[in-house]
Computed example of a mutant assay.
Amino acid sequence: MSKALRLAIVVTFLLSGCTTANSASLPYKAWHLGFSAPNYMEVWIETADVIDTRGQVYRRAMSGVSAIQTPPNNSGHPKGWPKRPGRGKGKYVTGAELPKKIYVRWQSLAEQKTYQVSIDVPESTREIMRKQETVYCAFDGREINEYRDALVIGLAPGGIAKVWILGSCLPPIEVTRVQAEIDLRGPYEGKSDGKYYNLSDISRRHIEEFGIPYGSW
């Protein structure tokens, strides 16, 4: 972990006892934290830790695999992000206020590299997540009132982390794109003797034939 990233996390934790003006109660029961990855570019999320606007820390708010598609016969297209990303695979962060900072450490199985990043969530994003909007929902066949209660992080090779907020029917809004740093300790903070989580055969074959489309995310 770089000195800059370590310092940022330490400072945030030292301030974790402070209640801010941004800690208004949620207009819904909980918000959803989800993760996705480009086709075939599998990742394993070791931990996603959340610090909310009250300074409360939620360790391992999410871990494990992200949402991903691995179509057979190399028919998938990993370049770029979808115009309308989904909620990803994740969990509701129950009991938390809206996020102020999210720390993610993950294994890029396509590259056999470990990345870590600290993502700041601006107040402007939280304001949108608190705002109720009216939208036509095809699922219901009518207009509904809804919030953007989901925050989705796309993880791509090269250490790219892209963030959106969205609702079930409300379209996604891009929040930020962040460059992660390589964790030189390797997987599991150096506690696995360099062994990574397994990459599926279908993804491995695609990467061997077509490579990794760096620069497209």
Rank of each mutant, 00 (worst) to 15 (best):
L98M: 03
P27L: 10
I173G: 02
E111Q: 15
V65C: 00
V65T: 12
L33H: 04
G86S: 13
S216T: 15
F139Q: 12
Q56I: 00
V121E: 01
Q69N: 14
Y92N: 14
R54Y: 02
L166Y: 00
N74P: 00
R148G: 03
V11R: 14
Y197G: 03
F139V: 01
S168M: 11
S75K: 11
N74G: 11
S2Y: 07
R142Q: 15
A67M: 12
H32Q: 06
R185E: 15
D183A: 11
K162T: 15
K131G: 00
L26N: 15
A30F: 01
I160R: 08
K29D: 03
G141H: 01
A61K: 03
P72W: 00
M1D: 07
E143G: 02
A138K: 14
P71R: 06
K101A: 12
W164T: 13
R60S: 06
S63V: 00
I165K: 07
S108Y: 05
G141Q: 03
V135S: 08
L109A: 07
N145D: 12
G88T: 08
T70C: 07
P82A: 09
V117Y: 02
E97W: 02
S108G: 14
Q107G: 06
A4Y: 08
Y188L: 10
S124N: 09
R87N: 10
I119M: 09
D120W: 01
L170M: 09
R54T: 02
M1V: 13
M129F: 09
P27D: 11
S75R: 09
G55Y: 01
E46G: 05
I102R: 06
E133K: 13
L5G: 05
W31R: 01
S63T: 11
S168G: 10
K100M: 11
K83A: 15
P71L: 09
V163C: 09
S36F: 13
Y58M: 02
L15G: 14
P78T: 12
P172M: 11
P38F: 08
P38R: 06
G190P: 02
T20V: 03
Q56L: 03
E42G: 04
G34N: 10
V178M: 08
P187L: 07
F139I: 01
P157Y: 06
I160E: 13
E97I: 01
G17D: 07
G95V: 04
R84P: 02
F210C: 05
W217H: 14
Q56S: 10
T70R: 12
L33W: 02
P99W: 06
N22E: 15
G167K: 11
G215L: 09
Q116W: 02
A21P: 00
A110Q: 08
D52F: 04
C137H: 01
F13T: 04
